[in-house]
Simulated scan of single mutants.
Amino acid sequence: MRVRNIVPALAAAALVVTACGAPGDSPGGADDPGGRDDVVGRENDEETEDTEPAPGTTTQPGTGSAEVVAVMDTDGREIGHVIFDEADEGVSVTVEFSGLEPGFMAMHIHENAVCDPQHADGPFQSTGGHYNPAGDEHPGHAGDLPPLLVTGEGTVHAMVVTDRFELQDVLDEGTAVILHQGRDNQANIPERYGEPDQDTLDTGDAGDRVACGVIEPDQE
């Protein structure tokens, strides 16, 4: 921000000096002790003061201590990571994945910090259900996040800010990131198709769990 403010001031000063011609031809030259050089110095001093962001600017993450969660598929291959960080309006969740099938995929925070691809009930069923301390229905769970759009090259880069939980909560309570094979319908079943069943209310019919990462503080 400081560099952004100073550069226009210097550019404006250079333009005025160029227009004035040779030194001594007009006020502001080298022979004028009260010329532009003195003005530029005063402008620089004034412009180096930090200013508050304008109302309505986008929340920027990075105000807290970030947690980087490595995410593995069922074969133990790391497909990328999720970064959790405190933001002005909640917690920022930044996603970087690669090697995925193109299309929409669901991502949630689940209640148990155990990523077991060999679990008897299916890959990563060890993580339990969605992180939901308030006991709400999907898509009102604290751990519900927007679906991810995987590019044709199999990559995802996305960021969202949520105020449904605090970073310390998901660290202390032991949780995990789960990536699902399919999209999440957010329990949105039009009335003409009937009432949503319990599976839809619990998971959004997102399909198999294909990748997992434990959310826990860095161990030093």
Rank of each mutant, 00 (worst) to 15 (best):
P147T: 05
N112R: 14
V161M: 07
V95T: 07
L201Q: 08
A70I: 01
L10P: 10
E47V: 15
L201F: 01
A12Y: 06
E216F: 01
P133Q: 12
P117C: 14
G64K: 05
T94H: 05
S92M: 03
D121G: 11
E89H: 04
V71K: 00
R164W: 01
S98H: 04
D32Y: 04
S65L: 14
E101G: 05
L148D: 01
D202N: 13
D38T: 14
G103F: 01
C212Q: 00
A211S: 01
A134E: 15
A66Q: 08
D25R: 08
H119N: 14
P27L: 08
G99Y: 00
L15G: 14
V40C: 08
T18G: 12
G90F: 02
F104H: 08
E96Q: 03
H110N: 12
V82W: 00
G103E: 04
R192H: 10
T18Q: 12
T175C: 13
G140C: 07
G207C: 02
A187Y: 02
P190F: 03
V95S: 01
R36F: 12
V156R: 00
D50Q: 05
I189V: 15
R192N: 11
D85M: 03
G204T: 02
V156D: 04
D184P: 05
T59Y: 09
S126L: 07
T175A: 13
D75G: 08
I109P: 04
P146E: 05
G62R: 06
Q186M: 15
N188H: 09
T57Y: 09
D172Y: 07
N132R: 08
G64Y: 05
A187L: 04
D32K: 03
P61E: 03
V177M: 15
D184V: 05
D88F: 05
G129C: 11
D50G: 11
G204A: 03
G62S: 12
I189Q: 12
M72K: 01
P123W: 03
L171K: 08
C212D: 02
P146S: 07
C212V: 05
V16M: 10
D184A: 06
T63R: 10
L149D: 07
L10A: 15
A30E: 07
D45G: 13
E111H: 06
V3H: 12
P123R: 06
V150T: 03
R209T: 01
L100K: 00
E191A: 13
L100E: 00
R42Q: 13
D116H: 09
H81R: 09
G28C: 04
G129V: 10
A11Y: 06
D38K: 14
A120G: 09
D136S: 15
N112M: 14
R77E: 08
G182T: 09
D31Q: 10
A134D: 15
A211Y: 00
P8N: 09
A211Q: 00
S98D: 11
P133V: 10
D25A: 14
G154I: 11
V69S: 03
G135E: 11
F97L: 03
A11F: 10
T59D: 15
L171S: 10
G128E: 08
I79S: 00
D169P: 06
G35S: 08
H141P: 04
E47R: 11
